[in-house]
Design a protein around this nucleic acid. Sequence first.
DNA 1: CATCTTATATCTTATACAAGAGTTGGCGAT
DNA 2: ATCGCCAACTCTTGTATAAGATATAAGATG
Lengths: 246, 246
Amino acid sequence: MKHDAMHMAGKPTLGFRPLYRQVRDILVKRIADGVWQAGQMLPSEPEIAAELDVSPGTVRKALDEMTAENLVVRRQGRGTFVAKHDDARILFQFFKLIPDSSVREFPDSKVLNLTSGINPEAASQLGLGRRDCVLVLDRIRTLAGQACVLERICLPAALFPGLEKREVPNNLYQLYAMEFGVTIGHASEKLKAVAATGEEAQHLGVAVGEPLLRVDRLAFSLDQRPVEWRVSLCRTDQAHYISDLR
Amino acid sequence: MKHDAMHMAGKPTLGFRPLYRQVRDILVKRIADGVWQAGQMLPSEPEIAAELDVSPGTVRKALDEMTAENLVVRRQGRGTFVAKHDDARILFQFFKLIPDSSVREFPDSKVLNLTSGINPEAASQLGLGRRDCVLVLDRIRTLAGQACVLERICLPAALFPGLEKREVPNNLYQLYAMEFGVTIGHASEKLKAVAATGEEAQHLGVAVGEPLLRVDRLAFSLDQRPVEWRVSLCRTDQAHYISDLR
DNA sequence: CATCTTATATCTTATACAAGAGTTGGCGAT
DNA sequence: ATCGCCAACTCTTGTATAAGATATAAGATG
């Protein structure tokens, strides 16, 4: 009775999704749509199960996957909560640069520039039309008292209306989620070592030609669409980028 | 009856491990000890369950975790197999450098040097005594026809007896597993951008001072002990290092 | 104010059945 | 008699569900 979906098409296995994955999709969509907001507690597993008319174990398996993706946080005896980008664990999910000889810390930011306009290269990266409006934010970040990262962040203007006229906070991904309903789910980064150009060197306080770590990041929202393109140039003389291979 | 372990100590919760995790530990140990070798098929879930006197679902949950850690590979209808380092998926688990404009490929290697002796710095990284013997392997790797990576690999000599007198293959982690019973479970890498020194520049065919990506990797065996320290210097003018953030 | 009870959340374990993948053996055509 | 095909069998992992254990916090109780 529960497997009607798989028998609708001609071939049973084509287009079939397990029940727990369908449940997962429903729950993810609710978070993406802001029905359940960051930090908020979800209904209990039995409640969700009753509402969707599945067994609690199936809901649980859906939440297992979402936990593995850092989308929700579970606490036994308390409940299940939508992951928030200011939790210590989630904060460093997307910030991989740490000082060589001290504990992990979150950097300060100073905005250099914030404009909007046509930008074919960024539009292409973000999967937009060549003439779609793109927001471009330049800023410099400070780690352990030293100017350390110079970055350019490109966003689809359509998704972030009014961002230009706003005070830009340090924690961008929290802003995206709270004010614009855009939750970053994952990102893929490409790293290179490059030589500092004149302007870059000046901003970071290093000599021209000095090696910098160039991090090219494309970040995706919960519905798997690219929503941020970011290129960061990092001094790595007193810090390093960490990557865990499992 | 199954929870005796938790009642032995004063506090119930201290030192208590769920049954499925105990099963996981047993299975991991069997792989680590070579009882089940790379590529080999494990007994079926019901068989393992009967042998350990737990329910199949418990074995299954243990294998779920091991699958997530890339330790085993499951194939519906076929069986569960110990992960092998020449499977396409596992191969690139530990090799993150890919050419800018072509498909992923695995590099060739040419050994420059292989020695053994005292090396306090490497010994410290590997958690050995300062005077324990360390193997040091220098080699250069070629990607898409271009000398691309210059790396130094340090190993505890005690774990790899006779490695010095042996032909060193391209795929080291497969060698560790097959010939020395050492399976790499995970690794943590620290990345920096550095300037090429004279010798480095010569080996890689770049100018002195050219930016290189320096990857400092510590790799751990299944029992969580560091067994390989590797520093790789990479040209990134035609390749990049990828990192997925989830 | 400390302790116990209770309600409710997640966590663990168990069981039944479905789906995928070889293997085997029957059966007909050649 | 032999080859090829296909159905049935049997083994595997995958999915769905349910019941009891454990953890947490709030309220009752002394």
